[in-house]
């Protein structure tokens, strides 16, 4: 359903036309697709901070390292609850967790409307599956908790200049990276809200990509940025509980070929999630130090984390 209440801008952004003829005269103008400069097992740097929205019981903000000419992931999450369910709601022996994932209208190259589309709803279901396994729901009967995730800047599905290569097919690889970010940031927000959990949950992505121009073979990379790769063959997101060594959410799609098995891909995604855990821990520690200054004195300062899967 289209949004008819507001006057909306054009559905997609416009770019200055670049004509092929001008490109031939000045080959330097020709845009080259971005390439991955990180090691295959190296994750992008993560910025994570909790307690940014005072009106909610818990909130967090996550940002991934920015690379040139590409967008980077920026997600905020607020958790409202646990709070009593409305009187009209039926009895629930467990905490009723409801998740909402919404892309801001300006989060992607093609503008998104205010009404949630099916991709966003699908992400919300994934996020709920991931979180439900961690939250100790039976400690809050008859109460609810809303986890609202707003994606301020999303991951692209492919390089924007690559329309020519018919890559603009909406394969949704970007969504998988967004989901991993959502899991981590929602976990931080839930911690900030003080909801009891069995463990810290973090999200991680791994993908099988075609490397280079020709068919030089398939490479497995952690924390892929889909725009940096010519072709993504398969990708996997996991929600991972590091200290229990368990997975609450797994989403894998694509043709996991014979050379690289699905098990291996899941293993790598778990590696990425485990590496993210260090950042989450540090962010929670930082929040604790702000809340309890005497704790900071006894424990010493904070440090940046090196992540390698």
């Amino acid at each position: 359903m289209t949004d008819r209440r507001r006057i909306n801008g054009p559905p997609s952004g416009t770019q200055t036309p670049i004509f092929a003829s001008t490109l031939k005269q000045t080959p330097t103008v020709r845009l080259s697709p971005p390439t991955r400069t990180r090691e295959p097992t190296e994750l992008r740097k993560i910025f994570l901070k909790t307690g940014l929205v005072p009106s909610s019981s818990g909130s967090a903000y996550l940002e991934l390292q920015h690379s040139s000419q590409l967008t980077s992931l920026k997600i905020t999450c607020t958790a409202h609850g646990p709070r009593p369910l409305p009187r009209s709601a039926p009895f629930s022996p467990q905490l009723v967790l409801s998740t909402t994932v919404k892309f801001a209208p300006f989060a992607s190259r093609v503008r998104r409307g205010y009404v949630r589309d099916s991709a966003e709803r699908d992400l919300a279901v994934h996020l709920e599956t991931a979180l439900r396994g961690v939250v100790l729901g039976d400690r809050w009967p008859k109460s609810g908790c809303d986890v609202v995730v707003t994606v301020l800047e999303g991951e692209e599905d492919a390089w924007w200049g690559d329309v020519a290569g018919a890559r603009e097919r909406g394969e949704g690889w970007g969504l998988m990276c967004v989901l991993a970010g959502c899991i981590t940031v929602a976990s931080a927000a839930i911690m900030d809200a003080g909801i009891d959990c069995v463990d810290l949950i973090t999200g991680g992505v791994a993908a099988v990509v075609e490397e280079g121009g020709g068919k030089r073979g398939e490479v497995m990379v952690l924390d892929p940025c889909p725009a940096e790769h010519r072709n993504v063959l398969a990708a996997c997101v996991v929600g991972y509980l590091a200290s229990r060594d368990e997975i609450t959410e797994v989403w894998m799609k694509g043709n996991a070929s014979a050379a690289i098995s699905a098990e291996e891909l899941i293993e790598k995604a778990v590696g990425a999630a485990a590496a993210t855990k260090a950042v989450l821990e540090e962010a929670i520690k930082e929040a604790a130090f702000v809340k309890f200054p005497e704790l900071a004195k006894s424990r010493g300062g904070l440090n940046d984390i090196d992540m390698n899967g």
């Binding site: 022996p93 467990q94 279901v125 994934h126 709920e128 599956t129 039976d138 959410e249 797994v250 894998m252």
Partner: peptide
């Protein structure tokens, strides 16, 4: 194998 998805298990909502 084309895709794997975990489905939210309804058992998590059952009363203990």
């Amino acid at each position: 194998l084309l895709s794997i998805r975990s489905v939210d298990s309804p058992s998590r909502l059952t009363p203990s």
